[in-house]
Design a protein around this nucleic acid. Structure first.
Length: 778
RNA sequence: GGGUUCGUAGCUCAGCUGGCUAGAGCGUCUGGUUUACACCCAGAAGGUCGUAGGUUCAAGCCCUACCGAACCCACCA
């Protein structure tokens, strides 16, 4: 017999265990059905789940529904190594014990982070189970599993053979504090009061027509001027038209630099003339590319002035700034200083450390250059013989192979794909999949390496050719921390060391390069049974913030490798916000921990709260009041079921084909309507309205009205009438439990099991609600 | 600067290709209820759908402008 209130904290874990032991999460449960597959976006393995992860309930909803429809259904779990994010979290742990990553060689550090991440993954698993997610745990994948690494290596090799991989010097967001580069996503701007210096660059007088003695540039970073290789003005700027093509003399060095015209210059700002420092400014880097200007690195990787700066060498950036300004002032080359200038300083998103733009060798994928198409399928898609990765991704959505919900995100997707730039895929960190390239140290004695000397624990760095006089190659290789090879250096691509005199590339792949192959890796491309059965997958569900970084990459890499899209529908679920619609963040203190909610109100209530009132691409606000409301609904379901069960057990005899009263007919008709409406809404991905429809019907029609209507008969003496009412009650109740099951799997299953125990029998009743067929209309 | 979204009851939001008297939850108010459930039931109040125009037989929904809010992308020497 059921108690007055559902004891969810007792039955929820118990029910989950029951399902798992029965093997219901595996596709083998309906092997003959048509395939339906979703891959859970792998959560970062470096932290517990937050309430946003609970939004993956839309996937469980779809999966459970399709399983009940009889589909061959697969939902795979996994975790992501999350490159820099994880290394950052781990380094914070290290620093709390007075250590840093420089205390370890790569291998040791990697192992330590690996252990940390494995521990966390276990917590994540428990959390996902607690939410009731019907994931096939036997297929769990981690993005650093050997099968993923192997695939990534193969893909890299294939892309290299197709000419899609290259190395180039590229201006990156380098953080001297962390000693690594950051992606544009990983840096942010901070507003700061700064000075704007107006510096006079003397002109080299050649033509008598030109009266000006100098050209004045405005800058916030005078210390980088030693790396200037031009002065630029806007091509339409009348003030400087006669100076374009002339030569200026760089103060302090008297180096000759050209005056050029470039669209990137804003004539409104400062003097309309800008110093061009290609090695330390992204815009200038682009200008330099367009005008073929040389690069001079004046700040080194430790944040000090380099050997190319003469007497300023070795000075930290801020000190160098002071000295240079002083020296300029002595020569009367400072026109004025704007002291109240507000500008935005680039800092790392973790820790707010200043970013120093630097030019470094990096690995790239050519996303915007065409290559030859081999597959007929792709030729048909594009109507051409050559295509770029970006175009492939664009066409897949434009031609309807992939549908994005909500549709407005398709426009954003197009914009991004149409403006796609080469994709830098290398990161200077340890935590990740190492780029499988090797350099011959005998051929390139100038390779820059840093390694941990195991004898004294000190880091030694320098050119490999010189270091080899003191240390053995194996010693260096063992303690290797970083290696920088010039872009001209030849390399061999191989997972294993190709010969005796080789040192490995130390950069690792951008996380998105490996997670971009997630559908292939999890399904065991190219020969796995899962791949053959489930690729392309049915739905990819994620939040909209990683549409470009992840979804677009999966589309491109999926098409490139398999000639087919990795999924047919992209559903962009809600961002979970607080009661007032504000983003949740630790600093605001409005973060909701999903497990706390589950403890207090049950997983079913949380699930329903996230599903109802949410629309794709829109935020969903979550409050305890809302969850409480759905906890009340769980109780309502419980008590309605308790009522039906009580009367069922009291019934002494049964009658075949009882006659129906008007109320019975009415509720059965409404049930049919509700089944149709709910199903139609689910087909259209309208989860909220599906949930509301069934909620409303169950509570206000079935409970408030129909159950009351049956009381006369149930408390009367006529056994036949009792039986009649009860058969309808049972029919409506069980169908409602089925309709509700994808939303609230625990309470519905628990009740169903109680009915089975109380003697519910018949060929239509399966051993679990979870594997019962979806209700059909009469 | 380019783009997107939102503005509907006191609060949080639904309202899908325009079509019955604009809905829900929470909150408020009135009343009820001993036998499924107070985590309940019956009922009520509360809306010129941001503003102003336009299209239409018909507009919360489509178009234009404006006001207010949020977000994304780019740039800020």
């Amino acid at each position: 017999m059921l108690g007055k209130r559902p004891n969810f904290s007792e039955y929820e874990p118990k029910i989950y265990q029951f399902w798992e032991e029965k093997g219901y999460f595996k596709p083998e449960i309906n092997p003959d059905g048509k395939p339906f597959c979703i891959l859970l976006p792998p959560p970062n393995a470096n932290a517990d789940l937050h309430v946003g992860h609970a939004m993956y309930v839309v996937e469980d909803l779809l999966i459970r529904w399709h399983r009940m429809l009889g589909d061959n259904t697969l939902w795979t779990p996994g975790t992501d190594h999350a490159g820099f994010e994880t290394q950052y979290v781990y380094e914070k742990k290290l620093s709390s014990s007075g250590q840093s990553r420089f205390n370890f060689d790569r291998e040791t550090l990697y192992q330590k982070i690996f252990e940390f991440v494995k521990e966390n993954s276990g917590i994540i698993q428990k959390q996902l189970r607690r939410l009731g997610f019907s994931l096939d745990w036997s297929r769990e994948t981690f993005t650093l599993d050997p099968k993923v690494i192997n695939l990534v290596y193969k893909t890299f090799k294939k892309m290299h053979q197709d000419g899609l991989i290259y190395r180039d010097n590229y201006i990156v967001n380098y953080c001297p504090h962390f000693g690594t580069t950051f992606a544009d996503l990983e840096v942010k701007y901070l507003e700061k009061q700064a000075k704007l210096w107006f510096i006079k660059y003397p002109l080299k007088a050649r033509e008598s027509k030109i009266k000006d003695k100098w050209i004045t540039v405005a800058t916030t970073r005078p210390e980088t001027m030693l790396g200037d290789t031009a002065v630029a003005v806007h091509p339409d700027d009348e003030r400087y038209k006669n100076l374009v093509g002339q030569t200026a003399l760089l103060p302090l060095t008297n180096r000759e630099i050209p005056i050029i015209a470039d669209e990137a210059v804003d004539p409104e700002f400062g003097t309309g003339a800008v110093k061009v420092t290609p090695a330390h400014d992204p815009t200038d880097f682009e200008i330099a590319k367009r005008h073929n200007l040389p690069l001079i690195q004046v700040v080194d990787f430790s944040g000090k002035l380099s050997e190319k700066t003469g007497s300023y060498k070795g000075l930290p950036v801020l000190e160098a700034r002071k000295k240079i300004v002083r020296d300029l002032a002595k020569q009367d080359l400072i026109e004025k200083i704007d002291k109240n200038y507000t500008h935005r300083v680039l800092v790392s998103y973790k820790g707010n450390y200043p970013i120093e733009p630097m030019v470094m060798p990096n690995w790239f994928v050519k996303t915007n250059e065409k290559f030859k198409i081999r597959s007929k399928k792709l030729k048909k898609l594009s109507n051409q013989d050559e295509i770029s990765l970006g175009e492939m991704g664009l066409l897949a959505v434009k031609k309807g192979l992939i549908k994005i919900i909500p549709k407005r995100f398709e426009k954003q997707y197009y914009q991004w794909m149409e403006n796609i730039k080469p994709w830098p895929i290398s990161r200077q960190i340890v935590w990740g999949i190492r780029i499988p390239a090797w350099y011959n140290v005998m051929k390139y004695p100038a390779l820059q390496v840093a390694f941990l000397n195991s004898k004294n624990g000190q880091v030694v760095s320098g050119e490999i050719g010189k270091l080899l006089n003191t240390y053995s190659l194996s010693e260096i290789e063992k303690g290797l921390q970083s290696l920088i090879a010039p872009t001209s250096a030849e390399y061999i691509i191989s997972p294993d060391k190709p010969g005796e005199n080789f040192l490995p590339e130390t950069d690792v792949f951008d996380t998105w390069f490996s997670s971009g192959q997630w559908p292939l890796a999890t399904l065991n491309y190219p020969n796995g049974e899962d791949f053959k059965t489930f690729y392309p997958t049915s739905v990819l569900d994620t939040m909209w913030d990683i549409l470009f970084f992840w979804v677009a990459r999966m589309v491109m890499l999926g098409l490139y490798l398999t000639d087919d899209v990795p999924f047919k529908t992209v559903y962009l679920h809600s961002m979970v916000t607080d009661k007032k619609g504000a983003k949740m963040s630790k600093s605001k203190g409005n973060v909701i921990n999903p497990l706390e909610v589950v403890e207090k109100y049950g997983a079913d209530a949380l699930r329903m709260s996230l599903l109802v009132g949410s629309a794709p691409g829109n935020p969903v606000s979550l409050s305890m009041e809302k969850v409480k409301g759905y906890r009340n609904f769980v109780t309502k379901i419980w008590n309605a079921s308790r009522f039906v069960l009580q009367h069922k057990t009291k019934l002494k005899t049964t009658f075949k084909n009882p006659k129906l009263e008007t109320a019975d007919k009415k509720i059965l008709n409404r049930l049919d309507q509700v089944i149709r409406e709910t199903t139609a809404a689910l087909e259209k991905f309208h989860f909220s309205s599906a949930g509301e429809t069934i909620y409303d019907f169950f509570w206000h029609e079935f409970c408030d009205r129909y159950i009351e209507q049956t009381k006369k008969r149930l408390y009367g003496e006529d056994e036949r009438a009792k039986c009649q009412a009860l058969s309808v009650l049972l029919k409506v109740l069980i169908d409602c439990l089925k309709l509700l099951h994808p939303f609230m799997p625990f309470v519905t299953e628990e009740i169903y099991q109680k009915f089975l125990q109380a003697g519910l029998k018949g060929p239509e009743y399966k051993e679990a609600l979870m594997v019962s067929p979806w209700p059909r209309t009469r």
